[in-house]
Nucleic acid binder design. Structure first.
Length: 414
RNA sequence: CGGGGUGUGGCGCAGUUGAUAGCGCGCUCGGUUUGGGACCGAGAGGUCGAAGGUUUGAGCCCUUUCACCCCGACCA
């Protein structure tokens, strides 16, 4: 994309109504726009980052047999009343609204109920199982207090996958499989090092659920990390009994603040029982489907990545999620314009995403924007360099500039 | 929802004992610049969050209200 086609602009000043670093940087760099507290619009570059995160998750979900769908945000209360979760005392984050005739509707905070009901149309026999529908959806949660920019919004993107299995054994095997998929997701997002599979409270059908917690100073959760085993224990289940059960002693653990970036949860028959999602097994008996739910928050991840990978100059996107791989800075007139245009075309033809700064701005402005936007590689084309037949390559992470011939440059980036 | 704080051009801010608003960034025009957010000159842009009140007079005082931020409680 050419910067001249990009309608967003960068600013030097951070908005005064944001304190969270992720929100300040993302707004300054023009990735997001704040509509109201906890509600953000994704602008072109932000949309690109979000899509990149979503695509990584999508690939990994498909790899474990996921079927992508897209459910409705508007919810009929009936199915929620059946499960008991329409009641505000049970689920206190509902946004409720109504039809013109006064009938109540809800905006989905999660999708267990409607999906369970939907699956009744397709699950009848053991031959129909197991299945793993999932979606990327905006969830609505009426949080008492939204905070920390994209980290806790009232409207946020979520990947929610649900497993429908025949037996507990089948469920457990998938639970393990998707747990491994989550590890791959966080690795690919650049968060693997700092992300721990964490024991958390499990509800009525399992002793534990598991959260994926990324260590961060802005975290809201407290976890106890076992570095060698690459696991952690959430404060909420940090008891002597649990430690004994896991065979871990307190002195092996380190306390840390962390952000919950994903969770996996055994639901058992919590929803299949009340909603009558049953199937006929090989013996001809009617039995309830065993379910699980598996969430990842792409928008929260975007906020966390922005927060985590940043320096005094701005954002520093990992290559896999960056809105472009290369920020092409053009300095100079005819020769530079021609050379930069050519380079832009070569990158584009090779499938490399480039933000081409074709504006009539001074070099300092372009460099500052390249850094604020956090594009992994800056390539500079200038009259001065062209005289020597060289281009300049500056990785965002190191900031160290290297002079390369066109051939070497392309070989390095393509 | 409890506590604290903040609302003034698009953004960041100043505004004294009450006298009808100013600075920086950005924007427009002209000129000079051109490898680290340039400089000079000339401009445009504000019913001071909203409503009510006190006063000869309110950005400033009082009341109500809305929004936003932070801490806490609660939560992907």
């Amino acid at each position: 994309m050419k910067i001249s086609h990009l309608f967003t602009k960068t600013t030097k000043d951070a908005p005064s109504d944001e304190v969270a670093k992720n929100a300040q940087l993302l707004i300054r760099a023009g990735f997001i726009y704040k509509e109201m507290a906890g509600v953000y619009t994704y602008l072109p570059l932000g949309k690109k980052v979000l899509d990149n995160i979503v695509n990584i998750i999508r690939e990994e979900m498909n790899a474990v047999g996921g079927n992508e769908i897209s459910m409705t945000a508007l919810q009929n209360p009936e199915v929620w009343q059946t499960s008991g979760r329409w009641n505000d005392d049970v689920m206190d984050v509902w946004f409720k609204t109504q039809l013109a005739d006064g009938k109540e509707l809800g905006l989905a905070p999660t999708h267990e109920e409607p999906l369970t009901k939907l699956m009744k149309n397709f699950i009848h026999s053991y031959k129909d199982l197991p299945v793993y529908p999932y979606q990327f959806q905006i969830k609505f949660r009426n949080e008492l207090r939204s905070k920390s920019g994209l980290m806790r919004g009232r409207e946020f993107w979520m990947k929610d996958l649900y497993s429908f299995s025949r037996t507990q054994e089948e469920h457990d095997a998938f639970y393990e499989k998707i747990s491994e998929a989550y590890v791959r997701v966080f690795d690919r997002l650049g968060l693997g090092e700092n992300t721990y599979k964490t024991f958390a409270s499990g509800g009525s059908f399992a002793k534990f659920s598991h959260e994926f917690q990324t260590v961060s100073s802005v975290g809201e959760d407290t976890i106890y990390i076992h570095k060698e085993k690459r696991i952690a224990i959430n404060l909420e289940v940090y008891t002597d009994d649990v430690l004994a059960e896991l065979g871990i002693s307190k002195n092996e653990l380190e306390e840390a603040k962390a952000v919950e970036v994903g969770n996996i949860f055994t639901l058992g028959t919590r929803f299949s029982d009340p909603l009558d999602l049953n199937f006929t097994n090989e013996e001809g008996a009617t039995v309830p489907v065993i379910m699980g739910s598996y969430g990842i928050g792409p928008s929260r991840l975007m906020g966390l990545i922005a927060e985590h990978f940043a320096d005094e100059k701005g954002l520093v996107w990992p290559e896999n999620v960056a809105p472009a791989k290369v920020y092409l800075v053009r300095i100079g007139n005819e020769d530079a314009i021609k050379a930069a245009d050519d380079l832009y075309e070569q990158f584009t033809n090779a499938g490399i995403e480039v933000l081409y700064d074709d504006r009539e701005e001074r070099p300092g402005t372009k460099f500052a924007d390249a850094e604020l936007l956090g594009i992994p590689y800056r390539v500079t084309v200038s009259d001065r360099l062209l005289a020597d037949g060289k281009f300049e390559l500056t990785p965002r992470v190191s900031g160290e500039t290297e002079l390369l011939t066109p051939t070497d440059l392309l070989a390095k980036l393509i």
